[in-house]
Simulated scan of single mutants.
Amino acid sequence: MSRTALRGTVLRGTALLAAALVVTSCGSDSGDEETSAGGGTPSSSSSGAFPVTVDTAFGEVEVPEEPTRVVALGWGDAETALALGVQPVGASDWLGFGGEGVGPWAEGLYDEAPELIETIEPSYEAIAALDPDLILDTKSPATQERYDALSAIAPTIGQPEGADQYLTSPEQQLEMIGAALGKSEEAAALQAEVDQAFADAAAAHPEFDGKTVVVGTRTSEGYGAYVEGDTRVEFMEQLGFTNSPAVQELAEDSFSVSLSNEQLPLLDADLTVMFPIFIDASEITDDALFQAVPSVQDGRAVVLDDTTLTNAFSIGTPLATQYALENAVPLFADAVS
């Protein structure tokens, strides 16, 4: 399915409520059975399912009624809620999009722009002033202090059990948010659309299968590379690539590792994908040390200098992922071939 078609699914009217993959936040009022979700257990998709219970790293969280005032604070939480037809009243803008705080692939999904909330150190007073009945914080610093402060305001869906800071997978994020919103069936259907898009891309490029990849970056502080569990690495793995064992051996408790200039040869792989963060791409492409990496010399490297594409590649929400598949995969194919 193309990004346009997928986005069109998000924008369908309430007449398709029962069958659409993405729906508005209204639903049936019948029934009071409590259901549980999180860590792979689905819940009902109608408002009649409430209350629902979502398992998180901080314990079970009950959402007593269908939420109508959602504050989305985690990385990608707002876009995920929008993809399920729910418009947050407050949201954090992790990638500095400005405006509504979402990427161009999600433009037009708000009727009214949310109030933007800081990311690492949000204002709890500003959040409380929005009078939320649900807070989404599924991909964040995930500290107990942060969770306690947020849950004192409203039921808060933190990271799943076992996930380190920022390492909630896109699948977990979609499942947990779908459960908390009473839209697990819609979330599962949307996940199936994303999975099929990856399967189609991988089938179209069998040359990706089993190839090693390094996904790296450079900031003003130096080079780094991502490890398993990070959204960008998972993206490549779903295309058939394997994260470079040499980089993976450096992994600790974070989603990335720093690389000294002496370690830049570790960027070598069957495919090297790089992007700049708050620097110009030329600081990568013109660097003699980077140019000396074998994959770079052989033309098996891609430097993503389009900020929109790097943001889509990084945030991992359903609409962003579709955008990245359409625009990044051809670049990868050219480099591998």
Rank of each mutant, 00 (worst) to 15 (best):
M1F: 14
R3S: 08
T4N: 10
T9C: 09
A15K: 10
A18C: 04
A20E: 03
A20V: 04
L21D: 12
S25F: 11
D29R: 13
E33N: 08
E33L: 13
S36C: 07
A37S: 12
A37H: 14
G38M: 00
G40Q: 07
S43E: 10
S45R: 13
S46E: 14
G48R: 06
V52S: 10
V63W: 04
P64C: 03
R69M: 03
V70T: 03
V70G: 09
G74E: 03
G74P: 05
G76D: 13
T80E: 14
T80V: 13
Q87H: 14
S92Q: 06
L95G: 03
V102N: 11
A106S: 12
Y110L: 01
Y110G: 12
E112S: 15
A113P: 15
I120G: 13
P122A: 01
A128C: 06
D133R: 06
L134Y: 01
L134R: 05
T143E: 01
I153V: 15
I153M: 03
Q159I: 09
Y166T: 02
T168R: 08
P170T: 01
L174Y: 07
I177K: 04
G178N: 08
A180Q: 04
L181D: 04
K183F: 00
A187W: 01
A192H: 11
V194Y: 01
A201C: 08
T212A: 08
G216R: 05
T217E: 02
T219N: 15
E221D: 14
E221K: 13
Y226M: 07
G229Q: 09
G229I: 08
F241P: 09
N243F: 00
S244H: 12
P245C: 11
V247E: 11
Q248T: 11
L250W: 00
D253Y: 15
S254P: 10
V257C: 15
S258C: 14
L259Q: 09
S260E: 02
N261M: 12
E262H: 13
L266E: 12
D268T: 14
D270T: 15
D270C: 14
L271G: 15
I277H: 14
I284H: 08
A292L: 12
T308G: 06
T308F: 01
T310L: 06
F313R: 14
F313S: 14
I315W: 11
T317K: 05
Q322K: 07
Y323W: 03
L325C: 09
L325A: 10
A333P: 05
D334P: 01
S337M: 07
